[in-house]
Amino acid sequence: MAFLRMVRIVLWSFFGVRKSASHEADFANVNFSFLPFVAVLLALCVGAAIFGVVLLVAHPTATIQGL
């Protein structure tokens, strides 16, 4: 459950909009030693998802020629 709370904190920080009361309530019960690892892991996942979408859109064999 603590891992999911840290994931939620990191995802909200990626989004950048949060009420200060919710922010303070989340940080009151979190283990700060694992938070950077969760943040890096989620940043890699978001980057891989964006990279995957770009590869799907710009695949070299997908051409519009020859309609």
Rank of each mutant, 00 (worst) to 15 (best):
L41K: 03
G66W: 00
S20I: 08
N31S: 13
H59S: 07
L4A: 13
L35M: 05
E24I: 02
R8H: 12
L11Q: 14
A28M: 04
K19F: 10
G52Y: 09
Q65M: 06
G47V: 05
F15M: 14
V38D: 08
G66Q: 07
L4V: 10
A62S: 11
F27S: 01
S33R: 00
A39Y: 14
L4D: 09
F15W: 13
T61Q: 14
C45L: 11
D26T: 05
H23A: 10
V57P: 00
L55M: 15
V7C: 08
R5T: 03
H23V: 07
W12K: 13
L35D: 03
A62C: 09
L35E: 11
V46L: 09
I50G: 10
A58Q: 06
Q65G: 10
V57M: 07
L67E: 15
L42Q: 03
I64V: 14
A2T: 08
G47K: 08
P60E: 06
A48P: 01
A48R: 05
L44M: 02
A39W: 04
H23E: 00
F51T: 13
F32I: 10
A48C: 07
V57E: 05
A49D: 04
G66S: 06
L55W: 09
I50C: 01
M1V: 06
I64S: 13
G52T: 07
V38N: 04
P36F: 03
A2Y: 01
V53N: 02
S20Y: 00
A43C: 13
V46H: 13
A43W: 14
P36W: 09
S13N: 02
T63F: 09
I50H: 00
V53Q: 11
H23D: 01
G47C: 15
D26C: 02
A43G: 15
L56W: 03
M1Q: 05
N31A: 11
T63E: 08
N31P: 05
G47I: 15
S22G: 03
L55K: 06
F34H: 11
F51A: 15
A49K: 01
S33F: 15
S22K: 04
V17H: 02
F51N: 10
L41D: 07
V53P: 02
I50A: 14
V57N: 01
V7D: 08
R18N: 01
N31E: 10
F51E: 02
L56N: 12
L35C: 12
H59A: 04
L35T: 02
V17K: 12
S33G: 04
G47L: 09
P36L: 06
F34T: 07
N31G: 08
A48T: 11
F15P: 02
P36D: 12
L11A: 15
M6H: 05
A48M: 07
G47D: 03
G52A: 01
V17Y: 02
H59W: 10
R18S: 09
C45Q: 13
R18C: 15
V30E: 06
A21M: 12
C45V: 14
